[in-house]
Structures are given as C-alpha cells and as structure tokens.
Design a protein around this nucleic acid. Sequence first.
DNA 1: CGAAGAGTTGAAACAGGTCAATCTACGTGG
DNA 2: CCACGTAGATTGACCTGTTTCAACTCTTCG
Lengths: 254, 254
Amino acid sequence: MKDLTTHTTPKEMVESRLKALPLFSLCPPETLQYLAQNAVVQTHKKGKILFIHEDTADRYYLISSGWVKIFRETLDGTQAVIDILDAGHLVGESAVLLDDEYPYSAEVVEQAEIVSLSSHELKVELDRNPVLMKTMLQIMARERKAQTSEIEHLSIQNAPQRIGCFLLRLTKQGDEGYVQLHLPYDKTLIASRLGMQPETFSRALKKLKKETDIEVKGATVIIKDLQALSDFSCAMCSSDYPCKDLSKKCSSSC
Amino acid sequence: MKDLTTHTTPKEMVESRLKALPLFSLCPPETLQYLAQNAVVQTHKKGKILFIHEDTADRYYLISSGWVKIFRETLDGTQAVIDILDAGHLVGESAVLLDDEYPYSAEVVEQAEIVSLSSHELKVELDRNPVLMKTMLQIMARERKAQTSEIEHLSIQNAPQRIGCFLLRLTKQGDEGYVQLHLPYDKTLIASRLGMQPETFSRALKKLKKETDIEVKGATVIIKDLQALSDFSCAMCSSDYPCKDLSKKCSSSC
DNA sequence: CGAAGAGTTGAAACAGGTCAATCTACGTGG
DNA sequence: CCACGTAGATTGACCTGTTTCAACTCTTCG
C-alpha cells in the first residue's frame, strides 16, 4: 500500500501532459506553467487511496498511466462505483467549484503514475480566464449528460445488456462486423463498475455469449457480429446508436 | 393535451421570476431584460410534452408553477425518469452548452405555468458575462454531485430505503422528531421517480411503515420519529446526514 | 350515478444476490 | 523447472427483492 517512488517533477513533462487535456488545450504556456507550479509526479501501487469523500480538496490529480476507481462508500463498507478512469483523465477537479470537499473517493486499482496538482492555482486561473471557465463548463455539461445516461442504464438495462453496452464502448469508432478487443481491467472491477456482483457478471456474460455471437477467452473478447450485439444491448437504451453520447474519452473527465 | 391559455408576456413578471433564480440573481436589470426579450408565458395541462430527447434546443424553460417530469425513453416505450421538477427550476438550459440538442425529454405532469425563453440570448450572455458563467459552472457542479448521489442511491439502496430518503428530502431543514408532510405528486409518479413499479412502491411503503414510525393517509405522511427514519434510510448512503448534499432546491436545476 | 384513474393486494415468475466450493492462471521461491 | 500460494474467475444451491399480471377497491370528477 506504499508508494513506489516519489521523484519531484520534470516541469516540462507535466506541462505537456496538461496541454494535451481538452480542458487546458487552449491555454498558453505561461498559464500551464502557473497551474503546474506545485505539481508532483508519483507512482502508486494498486490499493493506494488518493483521497476520500468529504476530505478537504486542496489537490486534484491527472492520471498519466494506470487506472483509478471513483466511488462512494457507506458506513458498513458497501461501495457504489461511480466510474473507473485511465490515462488522460482528471480526478477531483470539480471540487474546486464547490465547497472544497471531494464529492467521492478515489483509489488506484492498477499501478498508476499520477500527477498531483494544487487546487489553488486552478481556482485562481478559472476566475481570471473566461476561456478556461467556458471550456470547463462545456466539459461539465458533457459529463452531466454522460451521468444521465448512466442513470438510465442502471434503471432499465439488465445485467447482460449492461455488459454488452460496456463492450460496445470499448470498440473504436468505425469498427464493424468482426471486432477483437481486450478487457481493460479485472472482471471483478468491471462488475462493480456496472453495479453488479462478480458472480452475476460471470453468469450474465455467459448469457450474452449465447444471445449474441461473442467469444470470450480470459480478458480477450471477440465480437463476431457488432450489429447483433448492439441490437441486443441497445434495445433498452434511449440513444439510437451504440451509446454515441458516451464517447469514451468524454464519459467522465475529459 | 392542448394548451389552456397563451397570453403573451408581462415582461416585469418574467424578469422578476428570473431574478429570483440562483443562476440569475447576480444579474443587473438590463441583463434580465435582454434574456427575457423573447419570453412567452404559457399554461399547460398534464401530459403536455415540452420537448423530446435530441430535439434542437432553441428554447429553455422556467417552471412558475406545477410539476415537470424529466425522462428518457427507449424505442419500446420503457422510460427512465431522471427527475421531477417544480416551481423555480430551469429545464433544458444545459443544452446551451452542448451540441444544442436536449439531453432528455420533458413533460408536464401537474398543470403548470411555464416561461419559455430563447436559448440564443442565454448563449450570448454567457459568453460576455464571466460572473454568469461562473454561477452556471457552480450550479452544474452541484447538480453533478446530486446526480452522483442519485447513482449511489439507485445502486445500493433498496425500495423502502429509497422511499424513506425521498420523504426525508421533503422535510424542511431544522425539522426534528414529529413531522407532518404532504406528498407533492401522485404515488405512481414518485414510484417512477425512484425507479420502481407502483406495486413495489405500495408494498415498500407498507414495509417502511412497519420498520420506522410513520403513518400514511392518502397523500399525507406523518413521521413520528425523524431520527428512526433517517437511521433506517441513510444506513445505505455514503452521506452522514440525511442526504444533506441533495438540498432540495439544488438537487436538480437551481 | 357511473366511468376512469389511482392505489392496493395476491400469486407466480424472475433477476440478482449470497454463500460456499472449486477451478484457473500466474508469479514466487525453492 | 517445478511446486506452491494467492487472487481472480466460475459454478451450484439457495434466498430475497422486485416485477408482472390480474383482480379488486377507493377516490374523484363530470
């Protein structure tokens, strides 16, 4: 549960990482430099908690590699997984706008390199930079829309359909017919991400195999007929296309 | 399904309504006047559809009285209710920031007076008014947090707990011990709002009566022991208090 | 008074959850 | 290189919560 390394930061690397984010892509170099002035790069092992729900939000995080689970937890330890994010996503940045408390907990679930940044500079910069503010507003609006879809999925799709929908979101735009893909993290984790137990996931996947033409070997999934899969999964979804409004990179924190 | 009346707008009334919203409270009179220049006030009966998912979002709406259901719907007619809003809420304003399509459908479910406003002016004003933009950003962040709670509730609370949580959100801050309240709309509608069938609602309410000390007569609910109700309902919730982060007026569209 | 809609109740079906046992893959250390 | 231990994954048996369908009651409103 301890950090592997803690080397203080190669500034240029951090700034170029920030520049690559939709949120900061329009910012000039000086701004990036300002935002990154208190940045720290750390490598964390699986299990590392970045912060917990209602902690004071003095920092926000950029995932360089690995996976981070966003969740909430009741007193008795039951947890609701909100999302699971990978490289290129920001975590905890929305707290800057609220009461300075994180609205959820965050835990590393696959060894990750994380850039930790100070919330203060972001707060200041947002206030003096309307362009940045507008970008942030658009990103939040998109996230909100994605969350609305999430609520829809949870309430009307059954387990096999939710898995099918998850698989579809792993395909690349333009894919059709025969597709081979690789599950990005543990099946247990996918299960919690989709709001079901590991056992249910296993059984639902089996049912999905029977209903649509897919093959599963370990973490490799072969979709033989993309259309059949989307017919099955998206029947219980308001969006016409395979969840187009949940385009991968924007589903959570662009 | 037709409108009752369509009298064009008493400008001052509209502007004072706008002024009362958290989103516009900081705006000077000129701004309100600008935003309201194409406003229309209409009274709609139950069943009136304001707009549907993926329609072009050229207008947004302010509820003056009545209730409006926000939902999404699959091809076969199954619907997922996202929220149900009353007086003082905006509907469809978030589309201004996105691709100009409504992210959901909206239907009047209790006779309502609605102020319809043109999206264009809001779009223009947001771009030249950083204060308004910041307010909007904060409101969106709060809504996002509320939606995160919604996802948590759907995934880990059972039917009686969801009802209990709903009742708690109807209480006023400062209430304690003995509280009497009135269900704001049909039980069937509450059921769909909470993601369950009317029959399930009825049975779950019965169970809730047994577990905590509440009495139900028609639309009137008497909570004899607020603490007991929140102990029961909030056990499966990450928030310490009775859902404090879902403060009524901000749960959806301040 | 009667029709229509809302609400409740019962019986049966079903989806998922829980618990326990087993199986598999993989990295470690002998 | 093999044996072992561990964590992930699967399976079966059973249980619980929710849905579905159908019947019935209650309220409301013309």
